[in-house]
Amino acid sequence: MTRYLNLYWYFLIQRLKVLMEYRASFILGASSTIVWQASSIAAVWVVMQKVPILNGWSYDEVLLVYGLVTLSKSINHMFADNLWTLGRVYIRSGGFDRFLVRPIDPLFHLLADRFCQDGVGSLLVGAALLVKTSIALGIDWTPDKLLMLVVGVVSGGFIFIALNLITCVTAFWIVDSVPVTRLVFDNHLFAQYPLSIYPRAINILLTWVIPYGFASFYPASYLLNRDVGNIAWFAPVVAALLLFFGYRFWRFGLKYYSGTGT
Protein backbone atom coordinates (compact mmCIF):
# COMPACT_ATOMS: atom_id res chain seq x y z
CA MET A 1 0.00 0.00 0.00
CA THR A 2 2.73 2.47 1.00
CA ARG A 3 4.59 1.38 -2.11
CA TYR A 4 1.64 2.39 -4.24
CA LEU A 5 1.28 5.69 -2.43
CA ASN A 6 4.95 6.43 -3.04
CA LEU A 7 4.59 5.47 -6.66
CA TYR A 8 1.55 7.69 -7.05
CA TRP A 9 3.55 10.55 -5.62
CA TYR A 10 6.33 10.03 -8.20
CA PHE A 11 3.81 9.90 -11.03
CA LEU A 12 2.17 13.06 -9.74
CA ILE A 13 5.47 14.96 -9.53
CA GLN A 14 6.32 13.97 -13.10
CA ARG A 15 2.90 15.04 -14.26
CA LEU A 16 3.16 18.41 -12.51
CA LYS A 17 6.52 19.03 -14.14
CA VAL A 18 4.89 18.53 -17.53
CA LEU A 19 2.00 20.81 -16.56
CA MET A 20 4.32 23.57 -15.46
CA GLU A 21 5.82 23.55 -18.93
CA TYR A 22 2.41 24.46 -20.31
CA ARG A 23 1.19 26.84 -17.66
CA ALA A 24 -1.23 28.78 -19.89
CA SER A 25 -2.84 25.54 -20.91
CA PHE A 26 -3.16 24.50 -17.25
CA ILE A 27 -4.90 27.72 -16.29
CA LEU A 28 -7.17 27.71 -19.34
CA GLY A 29 -8.10 24.08 -18.71
CA ALA A 30 -9.05 24.66 -15.08
CA SER A 31 -10.89 27.90 -15.79
CA SER A 32 -12.83 26.41 -18.69
CA THR A 33 -14.50 23.96 -16.29
CA ILE A 34 -15.29 26.90 -14.00
CA VAL A 35 -16.90 28.83 -16.84
CA TRP A 36 -19.11 25.87 -17.79
CA GLN A 37 -20.32 25.54 -14.21
CA ALA A 38 -20.80 29.29 -13.94
CA SER A 39 -23.06 29.24 -16.99
CA SER A 40 -25.38 26.63 -15.50
CA ILE A 41 -25.42 28.34 -12.12
CA ALA A 42 -26.10 31.72 -13.71
CA ALA A 43 -29.17 30.24 -15.40
CA VAL A 44 -30.47 28.88 -12.09
CA TRP A 45 -29.77 32.22 -10.45
CA VAL A 46 -31.68 34.18 -13.12
CA VAL A 47 -34.71 31.91 -12.90
CA MET A 48 -34.78 31.75 -9.12
CA GLN A 49 -34.63 35.52 -8.86
CA LYS A 50 -38.09 35.36 -10.39
CA VAL A 51 -39.37 32.21 -8.70
CA PRO A 52 -37.60 31.64 -5.37
CA ILE A 53 -38.79 28.07 -4.79
CA LEU A 54 -38.01 25.05 -6.98
CA ASN A 55 -40.38 22.32 -5.89
CA GLY A 56 -39.87 23.15 -2.23
CA TRP A 57 -36.15 23.89 -2.54
CA SER A 58 -34.75 27.39 -2.14
CA TYR A 59 -32.00 28.80 -4.35
CA ASP A 60 -29.27 28.08 -1.80
CA GLU A 61 -30.58 24.58 -1.20
CA VAL A 62 -30.48 23.88 -4.93
CA LEU A 63 -26.91 25.20 -5.05
CA LEU A 64 -25.95 22.90 -2.17
CA VAL A 65 -27.10 19.92 -4.22
CA TYR A 66 -25.20 21.28 -7.19
CA GLY A 67 -22.08 21.91 -5.10
CA LEU A 68 -21.99 18.41 -3.58
CA VAL A 69 -22.22 16.64 -6.93
CA THR A 70 -19.55 18.97 -8.32
CA LEU A 71 -17.19 18.09 -5.46
CA SER A 72 -17.70 14.35 -6.01
CA LYS A 73 -17.22 14.82 -9.72
CA SER A 74 -13.98 16.71 -9.17
CA ILE A 75 -12.48 13.74 -7.29
CA ASN A 76 -13.20 11.56 -10.29
CA HIS A 77 -12.02 14.25 -12.71
CA MET A 78 -8.67 14.77 -10.98
CA PHE A 79 -7.71 11.20 -10.12
CA ALA A 80 -9.52 8.92 -12.55
CA ASP A 81 -9.91 10.90 -15.75
CA ASN A 82 -7.57 8.52 -17.55
CA LEU A 83 -10.27 5.85 -17.51
CA TRP A 84 -11.92 7.73 -20.37
CA THR A 85 -8.87 7.34 -22.56
CA LEU A 86 -8.20 3.64 -21.93
CA GLY A 87 -9.47 2.64 -25.37
CA ARG A 88 -8.54 5.63 -27.47
CA VAL A 89 -5.10 6.35 -26.12
CA TYR A 90 -3.83 3.12 -24.63
CA ILE A 91 -5.52 0.15 -26.28
CA ARG A 92 -5.75 1.43 -29.84
CA SER A 93 -2.09 2.43 -29.92
CA GLY A 94 -0.93 -0.71 -28.15
CA GLY A 95 0.45 1.45 -25.34
CA PHE A 96 -1.57 -0.56 -22.85
CA ASP A 97 0.77 -3.52 -23.29
CA ARG A 98 3.42 -1.42 -21.58
CA PHE A 99 1.37 -1.58 -18.36
CA LEU A 100 1.08 -5.35 -18.53
CA VAL A 101 4.80 -6.03 -18.41
CA ARG A 102 5.40 -3.81 -15.39
CA PRO A 103 5.42 -5.14 -11.84
CA ILE A 104 2.49 -2.99 -10.70
CA ASP A 105 -1.25 -3.37 -11.02
CA PRO A 106 -2.21 -2.18 -14.52
CA LEU A 107 -5.30 -0.39 -13.21
CA PHE A 108 -3.18 1.57 -10.76
CA HIS A 109 -0.76 2.38 -13.55
CA LEU A 110 -3.58 3.63 -15.77
CA LEU A 111 -5.00 5.86 -13.04
CA ALA A 112 -1.64 7.21 -11.91
CA ASP A 113 -0.46 7.89 -15.44
CA ARG A 114 -2.29 11.18 -15.68
CA PHE A 115 -3.49 13.43 -12.89
CA CYS A 116 -6.05 15.66 -14.61
CA GLN A 117 -5.61 19.30 -13.70
CA ASP A 118 -8.93 20.38 -15.24
CA GLY A 119 -10.66 18.78 -12.24
CA VAL A 120 -9.19 21.45 -9.98
CA GLY A 121 -11.70 23.86 -11.53
CA SER A 122 -14.62 21.68 -10.42
CA LEU A 123 -13.08 21.30 -6.97
CA LEU A 124 -12.94 25.07 -6.56
CA VAL A 125 -16.50 25.55 -7.80
CA GLY A 126 -17.83 22.80 -5.54
CA ALA A 127 -15.97 24.09 -2.48
CA ALA A 128 -17.10 27.66 -3.13
CA LEU A 129 -20.72 26.57 -3.48
CA LEU A 130 -20.50 24.52 -0.28
CA VAL A 131 -19.09 27.43 1.73
CA LYS A 132 -21.56 29.91 0.25
CA THR A 133 -24.65 27.79 0.84
CA SER A 134 -23.50 26.62 4.25
CA ILE A 135 -23.32 30.24 5.39
CA ALA A 136 -26.50 31.34 3.63
CA LEU A 137 -28.52 28.42 4.98
CA GLY A 138 -26.92 28.56 8.43
CA ILE A 139 -26.21 24.83 8.42
CA ASP A 140 -25.42 23.70 11.96
CA TRP A 141 -22.27 21.56 11.55
CA THR A 142 -22.87 18.93 14.19
CA PRO A 143 -20.45 15.93 14.14
CA ASP A 144 -22.95 13.72 12.30
CA LYS A 145 -23.38 16.33 9.58
CA LEU A 146 -19.65 16.82 9.19
CA LEU A 147 -19.29 13.07 8.92
CA MET A 148 -22.07 12.99 6.34
CA LEU A 149 -20.33 15.68 4.31
CA VAL A 150 -17.13 13.64 4.13
CA VAL A 151 -18.94 10.34 3.61
CA GLY A 152 -21.21 11.81 0.95
CA VAL A 153 -18.50 13.54 -1.05
CA VAL A 154 -15.94 10.72 -0.86
CA SER A 155 -18.49 7.97 -1.56
CA GLY A 156 -19.88 10.12 -4.34
CA GLY A 157 -16.41 10.44 -5.84
CA PHE A 158 -15.98 6.67 -5.70
CA ILE A 159 -19.40 6.13 -7.26
CA PHE A 160 -18.30 8.33 -10.17
CA ILE A 161 -15.01 6.43 -10.45
CA ALA A 162 -16.64 2.99 -10.17
CA LEU A 163 -19.24 3.74 -12.85
CA ASN A 164 -16.55 5.06 -15.18
CA LEU A 165 -14.45 1.98 -14.45
CA ILE A 166 -17.28 -0.43 -15.20
CA THR A 167 -18.09 1.31 -18.48
CA CYS A 168 -14.48 1.83 -19.57
CA VAL A 169 -13.76 -1.89 -19.29
CA THR A 170 -15.87 -2.33 -22.43
CA ALA A 171 -12.82 -0.90 -24.21
CA PHE A 172 -11.31 -4.38 -24.01
CA TRP A 173 -14.01 -5.55 -26.43
CA ILE A 174 -15.07 -2.51 -28.43
CA VAL A 175 -11.82 -0.46 -28.18
CA ASP A 176 -13.52 2.95 -27.97
CA SER A 177 -15.38 2.89 -24.68
CA VAL A 178 -16.05 6.64 -24.56
CA PRO A 179 -19.64 6.44 -25.89
CA VAL A 180 -20.55 3.82 -23.29
CA THR A 181 -18.98 5.82 -20.48
CA ARG A 182 -20.66 9.03 -21.63
CA LEU A 183 -23.99 7.26 -21.74
CA VAL A 184 -23.79 6.49 -18.03
CA PHE A 185 -21.74 9.50 -16.93
CA ASP A 186 -24.09 12.13 -18.36
CA ASN A 187 -26.84 10.91 -16.04
CA HIS A 188 -25.02 12.76 -13.28
CA LEU A 189 -26.47 15.94 -14.81
CA PHE A 190 -29.83 14.90 -13.34
CA ALA A 191 -28.20 14.90 -9.91
CA GLN A 192 -27.26 18.57 -10.21
CA TYR A 193 -30.82 19.40 -9.15
CA PRO A 194 -33.00 17.93 -6.39
CA LEU A 195 -34.20 14.56 -7.63
CA SER A 196 -37.70 15.38 -6.44
CA ILE A 197 -38.30 17.52 -9.55
CA TYR A 198 -38.15 14.42 -11.76
CA PRO A 199 -40.69 11.64 -12.35
CA ARG A 200 -40.49 8.51 -10.22
CA ALA A 201 -38.68 6.46 -12.87
CA ILE A 202 -35.78 8.90 -13.00
CA ASN A 203 -35.61 8.91 -9.18
CA ILE A 204 -35.33 5.14 -9.12
CA LEU A 205 -32.74 5.21 -11.89
CA LEU A 206 -30.54 7.74 -10.10
CA THR A 207 -30.88 5.96 -6.74
CA TRP A 208 -30.62 2.27 -7.48
CA VAL A 209 -29.28 1.85 -11.02
CA ILE A 210 -26.89 4.72 -11.73
CA PRO A 211 -26.72 5.95 -8.14
CA TYR A 212 -25.45 9.50 -8.60
CA GLY A 213 -28.22 10.56 -6.23
CA PHE A 214 -25.96 9.44 -3.38
CA ALA A 215 -23.45 12.06 -4.43
CA SER A 216 -25.80 15.02 -4.12
CA PHE A 217 -29.51 14.78 -3.40
CA TYR A 218 -29.40 12.40 -0.42
CA PRO A 219 -26.46 13.91 1.49
CA ALA A 220 -27.89 17.38 0.83
CA SER A 221 -31.25 16.21 2.19
CA TYR A 222 -29.50 14.96 5.32
CA LEU A 223 -27.64 18.22 5.83
CA LEU A 224 -30.94 20.08 5.47
CA ASN A 225 -32.82 17.72 7.86
CA ARG A 226 -35.15 16.50 5.14
CA ASP A 227 -37.09 13.21 5.18
CA VAL A 228 -35.11 11.16 2.69
CA GLY A 229 -31.77 12.20 4.19
CA ASN A 230 -31.14 8.98 6.13
CA ILE A 231 -30.78 6.99 2.92
CA ALA A 232 -27.53 8.91 2.46
CA TRP A 233 -25.78 6.65 5.01
CA PHE A 234 -25.97 3.87 2.42
CA ALA A 235 -23.60 5.81 0.16
CA PRO A 236 -20.38 4.03 1.28
CA VAL A 237 -22.06 0.65 0.83
CA VAL A 238 -23.23 1.56 -2.65
CA ALA A 239 -19.78 2.90 -3.56
CA ALA A 240 -18.01 -0.19 -2.17
CA LEU A 241 -20.31 -2.58 -4.03
CA LEU A 242 -19.83 -0.70 -7.29
CA LEU A 243 -16.05 -0.59 -6.84
CA PHE A 244 -15.91 -4.28 -6.02
CA PHE A 245 -17.94 -5.14 -9.07
CA GLY A 246 -15.93 -2.68 -11.21
CA TYR A 247 -12.62 -4.23 -10.21
CA ARG A 248 -13.87 -7.76 -10.81
CA PHE A 249 -15.14 -6.69 -14.22
CA TRP A 250 -11.80 -5.05 -14.96
CA ARG A 251 -9.97 -8.30 -14.15
CA PHE A 252 -12.40 -10.17 -16.38
CA GLY A 253 -11.85 -7.72 -19.25
CA LEU A 254 -8.11 -7.93 -18.81
CA LYS A 255 -8.26 -11.67 -19.38
CA TYR A 256 -10.08 -11.14 -22.64
CA TYR A 257 -7.70 -8.41 -23.83
CA SER A 258 -5.51 -9.43 -26.75
CA GLY A 259 -4.31 -6.15 -28.24
CA THR A 260 -5.30 -4.53 -31.53
CA GLY A 261 -2.31 -5.62 -33.55
CA THR A 262 -0.94 -2.09 -33.69
Partner: peptide, 26 residues
Protein backbone atom coordinates in the same frame (compact mmCIF):
# COMPACT_ATOMS: atom_id res chain seq x y z
CA UNK B 1 -3.32 27.29 -27.15
CA UNK B 2 -6.43 26.08 -28.90
CA UNK B 3 -8.27 23.49 -26.89
CA UNK B 4 -8.65 25.40 -23.62
CA UNK B 5 -9.68 28.58 -25.37
CA UNK B 6 -12.28 26.77 -27.44
CA UNK B 7 -13.86 25.07 -24.42
CA UNK B 8 -13.81 28.32 -22.47
CA UNK B 9 -15.73 30.16 -25.18
CA UNK B 10 -18.21 27.32 -25.59
CA UNK B 11 -18.87 27.48 -21.86
CA UNK B 12 -19.56 31.21 -21.98
CA UNK B 13 -21.74 30.70 -25.02
CA UNK B 14 -23.86 28.22 -23.09
CA UNK B 15 -25.37 30.99 -20.97
CA UNK B 16 -24.75 34.10 -23.06
CA UNK B 17 -26.43 32.76 -26.20
CA UNK B 18 -29.69 32.56 -24.25
CA UNK B 19 -29.91 28.79 -24.60
CA UNK B 20 -30.82 28.26 -20.96
CA UNK B 21 -33.07 31.20 -20.07
CA UNK B 22 -35.24 33.45 -22.26
CA UNK B 23 -33.72 36.94 -22.36
CA UNK B 24 -36.91 38.58 -21.03
CA UNK B 25 -36.48 36.79 -17.71
CA UNK B 26 -33.01 38.17 -17.10
Amino acid sequence: EVWGLGVLIEGMNFFLSGALVPLVMM
